[in-house]
Design a protein around this nucleic acid. Structure first.
Length: 576
RNA sequence: CGGGGAGUAGUUCAGAUGGCUAGAACGCUGCGUUUGGGACGCAGAGGCCGCAGGUUCAAGUCCUGUCUCCCCGACCA
């Protein structure tokens, strides 16, 4: 490709709106252009990177026995109704209508579609396991797009769906996909951690995210010091130590407590430690139930864990008005003690206790009235929980279940794998095959996604310097950035080299612009970030050849005409 | 959805208390001189000041509405 013909220009100036490295560099180097918030043009340079990422994914998926296909992007809405996903919030479906009034969902993920195509065929256990996948544009009505390609509303995703006879067979597939993902990201120069995560609206029992460590990432997760456990903060488990469980229970007391409404106000007034205070948070869920989360004061409510325990789809904080009028309590002074006895009879209330309450005796907290606190509150004796379990966030330094300390990390989620089990085959009719015994059985499923654009951005986040991007050769838009400086001799030598490289399968971006200074060409080359730079100039020719420099190295060398191809191939072949 | 900020040339930005023909840099076009780390000179093109209404002799500037973009939060009583 001749640089002078390349669509998409580098820019010296960049909007200060772009704060993230990948966002800035991809814009500045001419890989992407913004359309509207969260929707981007992928320019020719970016397209080549995207294609290469997809090629690697395709190779590895095929190697794992998966088969590429494609589904329509518009999904018949009936399918989403079949699985009840039209109104499960947290994922606002984008819908369109055709002129006859038929409704479609703009696909944000495609479980229903793949089950639907699968059940069209009369499948036998002999056809299983089967893993089918596609690359397609996905639509997500994100509340807030951010960070260039990192969080967008429209993006290309690889999504795969596996169908198995049973759990045992599925587990092999899941393991295979985990290994495949690790290899895919390795080939792009990304080291990923497989992190236990929450499955959100997808369904199923467990899933893992593939996370690239980065300060700007949105995923916070914990790993143990010994590396044996890694889990997203939403699901991370941890061990709790007893605090004063041997203490005698003292009589419950209600006292005056003129204070503010925060936990710190309680600590200050009573002069007692935070972990002896009870934290009470009132929620309302999608079913209209009020849910009181009760936990030790030094812990925070983990709404994902809480919603799993209560079976709620959404949780929102109850309004202060509801707390006063319906629950007969007072914001800042909520207590589980006696609440059910006093509240409005129309209210359905679920008291959910965190297991941390079993580690303390004689706790203190509110008393359901302004400026009244309770002392010596004890679970079971003074209040009963409808549900009890782990509803708290882990924190760095806490011990894991295995006893090893938890370390907090941040990262970019570039892919994930989900166990779906019978979730979709239960909800969708005829998602069945004929087993060896002649009986119909439901598919045991899994699904597996990789965001292409986000992966591209993650690579740039990890691999760049103050001058620009530093692509790993496996996904670089070109292998070689050829720069010509100076006389006609250099131009004709460059031309010959350009053609020679191309004939040998090397991808070359040739900066043959005549009216651009050397400095500008070097700056552009550094910004674009192609791994090999070759300069052909009067100076290099005087020294007997071409200047060869790798983007991630500070030293250049002169390579003569006979050796240049071999030198280039040496680097290119490293990636394959 | 809440809070904050911003929309002026292709891009990044400047245009105080309303006032003459709306500016700079970069980029772009032409000519010439340059060519190893974002060169220089000369000449040029380029603007419905986001959109709609209003106040005023006069609006990029003030008021109202609206759209768009960016950042923070989505959180514990």
């Amino acid at each position: 490709m001749k640089y002078s013909k390349l669509f998409g220009k580098t820019s010296k100036t960049i909007s200060k709106d772009a704060t993230m490295v990948s966002h800035k560099l991809l814009l500045q180097a001419g890989y992407i252009a913004e359309s509207v918030a969260g929707r981007y043009f992928i320019l020719p340079l970016g397209m080549r990177v995207q294609d290469k990422i997809m090629e690697i994914i395709e190779e590895e998926m095929d190697r794992a026995g998966a088969q590429k296909m494609i589904s329509p992007i518009l999904h018949p809405l009936e399918l989403w109704k079949e699985t009840n996903r039209t109104n499960t919030t947290g994922f606002e479906l984008m819908k369109v209508k055709d002129r006859r009034g038929a409704e479609f969902a703009l696909g944000g993920t495609a479980e229903e579609m793949f089950v639907d195509v699968f059940r069209k065929y009369n499948m036998s256990y002999k056809d299983l396991p089967c893993n089918i996948y596609q690359f397609s544009t996905k639509f997500r009505d994100e509340m807030r797009a951010r960070g260039g390609l990192l969080r967008v509303r429209e993006f290309v995703m690889k999504d795969a769906y596996s169908f198995d006879r049973d759990e045992e067979s599925f587990k092999l597939e899941y393991q295979k996909m985990a290994e495949t993902y690790t290899r895919i990201f390795e080939r792009m120069g990304l080291k990923t951690t497989m992190v236990l995560a929450d499955n959100g609206y997808i369904g199923g029992e467990y899933c893992h995210e593939f996370v690239v460590d980065s300060e700007i990432g949105e995923s916070t997760y914990f790993v143990t010091e010994d590396g044996s456990y890694a889990a997203h903060e939403e699901v991370a488990e941890f061990a709790l130590e007893d605090i004063n469980v041997d203490e005698e229970m003292k009589p419950l007391q209600v006292i005056d407590a003129v204070r503010g409404t925060t936990m710190e106000d309680g600590v200050k007034l009573h002069g007692l430690p935070m972990h002896m205070q009870i934290k009470d948070v009132m929620y309302k869920d999608d079913k209209g139930r009020y849910i009181l989360a009760v936990l030790r004061g030094d812990l925070d409510v983990n709404e994902v864990k809480l919603s799993h325990l209560t079976g709620s789809i959404t949780l929102e904080h109850a309004s202060e008005e509801d707390i006063r009028t319906l629950l007969k309590s007072e914001p800042g002074f909520i207590s589980p003690v006696g609440m059910k006895e006093n509240m409005d009879s129309s209210v359905e209330l679920l008291i959910v206790a965190d297991r941390s309450l079993r580690t303390i005796k004689n706790a203190y907290g509110g008393a359901n009235a302004l400026n009244k606190d309770s002392l010596n509150v004890n679970i079971d004796r003074d209040y009963k929980a409808d549900l009890e379990g782990d509803i708290a966030f882990a924190r760095e330094g806490f011990k894991s279940i295995s006893g090893s300390k938890l370390i907090a990390r941040k990262g970019i989620e570039v892919g994930n794998i989900f166990q779906l089990g019978y979730h979709y085959s239960n909800l969708m009719k005829n998602a069945e095959f004929v087993d060896v015994d002649g009986k119909k059985k439901k598919y045991y499923m899994g699904c597996y996604g990789i965001g292409i654009g986000r992966t591209m951005a993650a690579v740039v986040e990890i691999m760049s310097d103050e001058k620009g991007i530093v692509w790993p050769i496996g996904i670089s838009p070109y292998h070689v950035h050829l720069i010509t400086l100076g006389s006609q001799d250099a131009v004709s030598k460059s031309d010959a080299l350009y053609n020679n490289l191309i004939e040998n399968g090397v991808e070359v971006l040739w900066d043959e612009r005549e009216d651009v200074s050397a400095g500008a060409k070097f700056a552009d080359a550094d910004l674009i970030g192609i791994p090999i730079r070759i300069v052909v100039s009067d100076r290099s020719l005087e020294k007997g050849g071409y200047e060869f420099k790798e983007r991630n190295s500070d030293t250049a060398e002169i390579v003569n005409e006979g050796d240049i191809l071999g030198k280039v191939m040496g680097v290119v072949n490293k990636s394959l």
